[in-house]
C-alpha cells in the first residue's frame, strides 16, 4: 500500500510553523517512514503531482497568489489544516487590517524615512501578485477541516495532529498542546 501523502505551503507566514514541523527531533525519521511529501517547500516540489491526503497551510492570505495557492490546496487535499496563528486569524501580517491599504502602501513605499527620495514608487508590475485589502484567515477563503493554534504550534502538537490524521484516528488535543502564543 502506498504511503499517505502530505503537502505543505507557507502563505503570509514567516516559515516558523515549518520550522516547528522540523522541530519534532528524531521523530522526523519516523515521519519519513510514515508519509510521503508532495508539493512542499521541504522537498521543493512546486506543483501537485498526485492527490494529497493532508495539506498543511501556514500563514493567511495577503495577496492574490496566496488565495490561488490556498484554493489549489483545497482542490488537491482531502484534509486541509490551518497551522499556526497567521493561518487561523491572520497573525502579525493582519496588524495592517484596520489601516486602509493605500495608507499602508504610501507609508511603506513613499513616506518611510528609509525610502530613497529618487525611488518613491508603489510597486505595480503586472507580474506581482495583487495585494488584498486585508489579510484573511484561511477559513474565510476556503473550507478548513482542522486548526492547530500556536505561534508556532508546538512540535508535539503538529506531530500529534499529523500522525492522527494520516492514521485516521481522532485528534487528541490536550490542554497543554493548545496555546495561542
Amino acid at each position: 500500500m502506498s504511503k499517505p501523502v502530505i503537502a505543505t505551503a507557507s502563505l503570509a507566514g514567516c516559515f516558523g510553523c515549518h520550522m516547528s514541523l522540523l522541530d519534532i527531533d528524531e521523530r522526523i525519521l519516523g515521519l519519513i517512514d510514515l508519509v510521503e511529501f508532495n508539493k512542499s517547500p521541504i522537498d521543493d516540489i512546486k506543483t501537485f503531482t498526485k492527490p494529497v491526503d493532508v495539506g498543511l497551510i501556514e500563514g493567511g492570505c495577503c495577496n492574490s497568489e496566496n488565495v490561488e495557492v490556498l484554493r489549489s490546496f483545497r482542490k488537491n487535499c482531502k484534509v486541509l489544516v490551518s497551522v499556526g496563528e497567521c493561518a487561523i486569524m491572520g497573525g502579525l501580517p493582519a496588524m495592517r487590517n484596520g489601516i486602509p491599504i493605500r495608507e499602508c502602501l504610501e507609508e511603506a513605499y513613499l513616506n518611510s524615512p528609509t525610502v530613497d527620495p529618487e525611488d518613491r514608487l508603489i510597486p505595480n508590475d503586472e507580474d506581482l501578485p495583487i495585494i488584498l485589502d486585508k489579510v484573511y484567515p484561511c477559513h474565510e477563503v476556503v473550507k478548513i477541516d482542522h486548526f492547530l493554534p500556536g505561534c508556532p504550534p508546538s512540535a508535539d502538537l503538529i506531530w500529534e495532529a499529523v500522525t492522527a490524521l494520516v492514521e485516521g484516528r481522532p485528534l487528541q488535543l490536550t490542554y497543554d498542546l493548545i496555546k495561542f502564543d
Binding site: 490551518s82 474565510e140 488535543l173 493548545i178
Partner: peptide, 22 residues
Amino acid sequence: LQALAYRYQLMAPRFPYLWPRR
C-alpha cells in the same frame, strides 16, 4: 479571555473578523 478560549477549545471563530481600528 484567552483562558476561556482554551477551556472551550476555541480553534477558529465561526464569525468573520471585523478588524476595527482602535
